[in-house]
């Protein structure tokens, strides 16, 4: 089976035609429709994961307990294929493929999977960020007579903010990618354009969808990087060289 009978140039022409046609963007099942749906999914799942994971991880990092769990949850998250988890949720009696409000078909299954896959990067980086605040700084805070809460609120949290925001940023990338995969189980989101295109051998449409997904992913990453810089209370120039955070290996799907 030749996927592109007319050659490479022809596929690119198809992609361009799809992207340049107003009809592909508007209406039910258009690019904009799916884009809004996927942004909504991403935002909801990321907020849920932050609400669930961040406070616990911050507190564990402050206490210095549960490190084994906090660090290894990322390894487990990496080994379980997103696609497999989504497939299992969709095939189960609950949540199944039931439509869920504005989230569309298989909405609950997708939201659960997205939230679960956003948790590991948030928990691991947050825990490490608070834990890795330099010991001499913590000791100085204790020496000044700060209580545990004051030490956390006024010393550890500001110093860890940069890394914590980095963890949320990783989670955002992860959630966006997973939301795209949802289309492989006929769930909601932009991935539908990709899978519809490939199922119907309309490769121009499929690749056009991929272009949109990739562009939005890069845009989100840039916005997240800017946001990360904005929330960091410590100016970049004031950062000591030893404060350079350990590289956290990213996850993708």
């Amino acid at each position: 089976m030749d996927p592109h009978p007319g050659g490479v140039v022809n596929v690119f022409a198809d992609v361009w035609n799809h992207l340049a046609t107003a009809d592909s963007w508007t209406g039910r099942g258009g690019i904009l429709d799916y884009l809004v749906q996927q942004l909504l999914l991403t935002g909801t799942a990321l907020s849920l994961a932050v609400l669930l994971g961040l406070p616990a991880a911050l507190w564990l990092g402050h206490l210095g307990r549960g490190g084994f769990l906090a660090v290894n949850i990322s390894n487990v998250g990496r080994a379980v294929p997103t696609f497999a988890l989504l497939a299992l949720l969709v095939a189960a009696d609950w949540p199944g493929i039931a439509t869920f409000g504005p989230f569309g078909r298989a909405g609950i299954a997708t939201l659960i999977a997205l939230t679960l896959f956003a948790l590991p990067p948030i928990i691991t980086t947050t825990y490490v960020a608070v834990r890795e605040v330099a010991d001499d700084v913590k000791e100085a805070a204790r020496g000044m007579g700060m209580t545990g809460w004051q030490q956390f609120r006024r010393v550890e949290l500001p110093l860890a903010t940069h890394l914590v925001a980095g963890g949320v940023r990783l989670a955002l990338v992860q959630v966006w990618a997973t939301a795209t995969i949802a289309a492989l189980v006929a769930g909601p989101g932009l991935g539908r354009i990709i899978t519809d295109g490939f199922v119907n051998s309309d490769y121009g449409k499929g690749i056009a969808g991929a272009v949109v997904v990739a562009v939005v992913a890069l845009a989100l990453e840039v916005l997240a990087a800017l946001a990360q810089r904005a929330v960091d209370p410590i100016p970049r120039t004031a950062r000591r060289r030893t404060d350079v955070p350990p590289t956290t290996l990213p996850t993708t799907t």
């Binding site: 089976m1 030749d2 996927p3 592109h4 490479v8 596929v11 690119f12 990338v173 966006w176 990618a177 997973t178 795209t180 995969i181 289309a183 492989l184 991935g191 990709i194 899978t195 295109g197 490939f198 490769y203 499929g206 690749i207 969808g209 991929a210 272009v211 997904v213 990739a214 992913a217 890069l218 989100l220 990453e221 990213p250 993708t252 799907t253």
Partner: peptide, 22 residues
């Protein structure tokens, strides 16, 4: 490579298809 990593796999594979096919 960071930029590449942000592109979901479901979108990366289609982007390679014009060059490498199915």
């Amino acid at each position: 490579s960071t930029a590449l990593y942000t592109v979901p796999s479901l979108a990366l594979f289609p982007l390679l298809v014009p060059f490498t096919g199915i």
